[in-house]
Amino acid sequence: MTERRDLNQELGRILGPDGPDIGCDACFRELDRYVELELAGADADAAVPGLRTHLEGCPACREEHDSLYALAGSER
């Protein structure tokens, strides 16, 4: 089971997510709006389509998203 999950993760890292992906520059541009919608419990993915997919395919933008979510979230 572990091996299967490892292989699946390797394949996932290589093939990335499927579907529309807004890329790194648009991700940075929209990140603050997206995170605040998430923190407010709103539908961030409907407001910024393709950003979630990008986070699944781009570990760097993902780390920055998670940090902004944690930092902004710690202040409410």
Binding site: D32, R33, V35, E63, E64, L68, A72, E75
Partner: peptide, 23 residues
Amino acid sequence: DDFRGASRFTTWAYKFALYEAAV
């Protein structure tokens, strides 16, 4: 000028610092 109030100013500003630090 890029800041249009889509988030709090502080959240918008944070992302620059997080990005620079992460890189």
